[in-house]
Design a protein around this nucleic acid. Structure first.
Length: 234
DNA sequence: GGAGTTAGCACAGTATGGAT
DNA sequence: ATCCATACTGTGCTAACTCC
């Protein structure tokens, strides 16, 4: 996906109230922008970092600007807009950039499934294949070149893994796709030091047939594309 | 119009500890 | 034993926006 109009840079003053952040533009103007990430954003919201924001056409918005990327002082780009992970995955599947997920002729999103009635991010279907359920997680937490998920204890994430295990048990394909949205990351693993239970459950899911994929996005202030397979350890 | 997203806040309730 | 101040825990609500 391309950012149009192009993103604008600013310097982060602080993030606060979960959805808001104050930044100062190169011209010295202080702006309040919308922060589309409710997570902990560890390492992505350090005061003084450069943030890149988009501008919405929607006149009803109280704050027309949306925080899209963070640029750390080491120069790494991180996409903090959690909505992008799904957009990028959809585009990547449609453009056949993910070899494991090609050959289907129908792509649906937000389909209800499983015993706990979760909504799956994507359902791929074809006449001659098993249904393929895909749950997308965005990875923004990094230590050096190692990317981690989750960045905080996630009961919801654990629920999604249980649902995927039951999908696999029913004979369908179950895929968890970690979309790495951090340019410095070269390797992925679950954040055992943050949510040990999630890490164990991911391992169990993997052994029970849930496919694990990790792809990294090419990130720039012009746009994002999910296309680079990443090695991971579970 | 409703779901989804989660830290922070107010508030209520419970626990602890020091002073009398 | 009683009182008050403080500390902690748990619950429920809120924030702004996008997408279905």
């Amino acid at each position: 996906m391309e950012f149009s109009p192009p993103l604008q840079p600013a310097t982060l003053i602080q993030r606060y109230k979960r959805f808001l952040a104050d930044v100062v533009t190169p011209a010295g103007e202080t702006l309040t922008i919308h922060c589309p990430n409710t997570g902990a954003m560890t390492g992505c919201a350090t005061p003084g970092d450069t943030v890149w924001y988009s501008t919405s056409e929607n006149s009803k918005r109280k704050y027309p600007h949306t925080w899209e990327l963070s640029q750390t002082q080491q120069g790494a780009f991180i996409c903090v807009n959690t909505l992008r992970a799904n957009t990028l995955t959809r585009e990547a599947i449609a453009q056949n950039l993910l070899p494991e997920l090609t050959g289907y002729n129908s792509l649906k999103s937000e389909v209800k499934y499983g015993a706990e009635r979760s909504r799956i991010d994507f359902l791929l279907q074809a006449d001659d294949r098993r249904n393929c359920y895909i749950e997308v997680k965005s990875v923004t937490l990094a230590e050096k070149a190692n990317g981690f998920f989750p960045d905080a204890v996630t009961l919801r994430g654990q629920k999604h893994l249980r649902e995927l295990m039951s999908v696999a048990a029913n004979g369908d394909r179950a895929v968890i796709l970690f979309a790495v949205l951090h340019s410095a990351v070269e390797h992925f693993s679950p954040a055992r030091h943050i949510d040990e239970k999630y890490a164990r459950l991911l391992n169990e899911a993997h052994h029970q047939g849930v496919e694990v994929l990790a792809y990294k996005a090419e990130l720039s202030t012009r746009g994002l594309t999910l296309r680079l397979p990443l090695p991971f350890t579970l």
